[in-house]
Design a binder for these strands. Sequence first.
DNA 1: AGGCAAGATGACACCGGTTTCCAAAACAGG
DNA 2: CCTGTTTTGGAAACCGGTGTCATCTTGCCT
Lengths: 350, 350
Amino acid sequence: MPKESKPDVPAAGVPTAKPTINDVARISGVSKKTVSRVINKSPLLGQATREKVEAVIAELGFVPNLQARALALRRNFLIGLIHDNPNAQMVLGVQEGILQTIRDTEFALVVRPVDRHSPRLLDDIRHFIEQQRLYGVLLLPPISENDELAALCRELGCTLVRMGSAELDDEAHLVASNDRQAVREAVAWLTGLGHKRIGFIAGPTGFRSAYEREQGFAEGLAEAGLTPDPALATRGDYKFESGYEAGQRLLDALPRPTAVFSSNDEMAAGLLHAARERGIDVPAQLSIIGFDDTAIAAHIWPPLTTVRWPIVPMAAAAAHKLIEPSDALSRQALFLSDLVRRASVAPPEA
Amino acid sequence: MPKESKPDVPAAGVPTAKPTINDVARISGVSKKTVSRVINKSPLLGQATREKVEAVIAELGFVPNLQARALALRRNFLIGLIHDNPNAQMVLGVQEGILQTIRDTEFALVVRPVDRHSPRLLDDIRHFIEQQRLYGVLLLPPISENDELAALCRELGCTLVRMGSAELDDEAHLVASNDRQAVREAVAWLTGLGHKRIGFIAGPTGFRSAYEREQGFAEGLAEAGLTPDPALATRGDYKFESGYEAGQRLLDALPRPTAVFSSNDEMAAGLLHAARERGIDVPAQLSIIGFDDTAIAAHIWPPLTTVRWPIVPMAAAAAHKLIEPSDALSRQALFLSDLVRRASVAPPEA
DNA sequence: AGGCAAGATGACACCGGTTTCCAAAACAGG
DNA sequence: CCTGTTTTGGAAACCGGTGTCATCTTGCCT
């Protein structure tokens, strides 16, 4: 019994040195190169040889050294998540989705929050990608809309998938949700209940997601034969406080809107604060719809009707596109959102 | 032209191949080894030689190849964040803190959420650490309380810092906040306002953080000369729904508590829901204090008085302990929390 | 059978650092 | 001036894989 390979409880003086490709080659009586071919599933390889080598690999519990591969391939097995997104829940949802995909692969996820307004942004990211030799990166909105950044990734030979609204990139490098359509349905829900004065809180200018939601709102009104009232449209920056301020403006309008669509949940929560301060009952006197279905939507009072988009599956698909671009699963680029109906919406008062 | 390898318009004919340690050695007229000594700040090296080499490094813009170093050193420049924490804001705060520390170093952050109850937990993490050859890992609560996991990291030669309540580990491998003291102060705030029937929603059993907060609550009552009433103590699992259910129980108690301390904000929000359903006015008829100061605390109505602990600085310190253990900054292990006073607390009704 | 294309395998250099070992140079003491 | 010790630099091996290219089998066609 010269060799005893109990991985747990080394106990004995055996150093438990991990087997290398050389060990596998020696024991199975082939060259390193052949073992390498087995590892990489090279097609030009004899069936018999492959099985023999695989048996030895299994027996030894051989796991290829990622650092050595990274050196030789000039490419690390790391997926980078680059984002500039204030929404913790969304970022974590994306991380979860990516990890669902790379679980049981050799890939790992490295995260890199950035400051969109930093002048060193591109230099920093260039250095980051080069130094870590990232295999691919996933860009989250809003920074996914930065075309310079995308060009940089491509220049560095780093595969790239962008998350965001459609038309940002081609299908192979994009996952998107149909925000516009979802907002139209949300507005249809309100008009169907009889609402005619519907306010709108837009997201910040320059964000494609904000633009899409705006368009969806306009289309929704048009479908119901309503004309937009400029006094009922205002803008925020996706943060709670801006929703609160937007609420002040909207609730000053006369006659007051009977419903408001907010471009995200945080601003909707801010609006709700403003309504509460004025003693306006939600939903009896004011219906509210948000967007994103973040945790806060279900936990404020009344629970918020909102548009939910499938963050985790989208991120999982994005990761799939990065590491298995030719796979059929990597085909889908558009994901559907749906309206979550909760207590913040009711028919308008008579 | 047999070989043409222009990746992307590098403009000049310069191939932009990155300089290696060999280039530096050749140009500065020394050996690789000497350059390596410069990179690694080896003490036994001539001053003149060092400066000469450093000049060449700067001029060439040489950056050592991390993958090659990782292979040779058998250790990658990656910090792992292992967590099993449902609170997105907290996890993201930790990521931010770590990144503050490793910014401008060669380290990167790789994240690894896990399932505490998975039977494969230890095997998975072993494989992860070995495969990626992590330099160090940071463990977040509640999984940071798993001593087997900590032992595993040590066995694999991976430095380790645990985040959580004190007494989990020695100072060099721990960052903690003084939960107990903070809860005592929160309770003192309530008793100071005249509350005498104070309810408590504990966190799940088996969590040290939950235990610390329980102790702090008991001590706070004792300091005010109050005796704990078992009818006013209940338990949740840190989730919104469990807070809601806990609220049902507490608000059934007769006489009703005039204030409740909840072991985290989510459960406090659940309690608030329960109170609202019964038409109980907060804070006039019921004061509520939470813990964590997550986003929801400020955004629900009324805004929640809560205990805030310094997540980001704690995580930054933890990362510092990992990569620069001997540094003076790595000395601090205990961080102070403070009470954020908002509108959910008022004196009891007469 | 001979010729040839295609397929399977191996030898060897290479990725870019670190480490071992040893020689040369510098320095001290006798 | 010689010997012994310390500092400094170089050659070569090594970390553990992958790429290129040559070689050796095969199978197929005429």
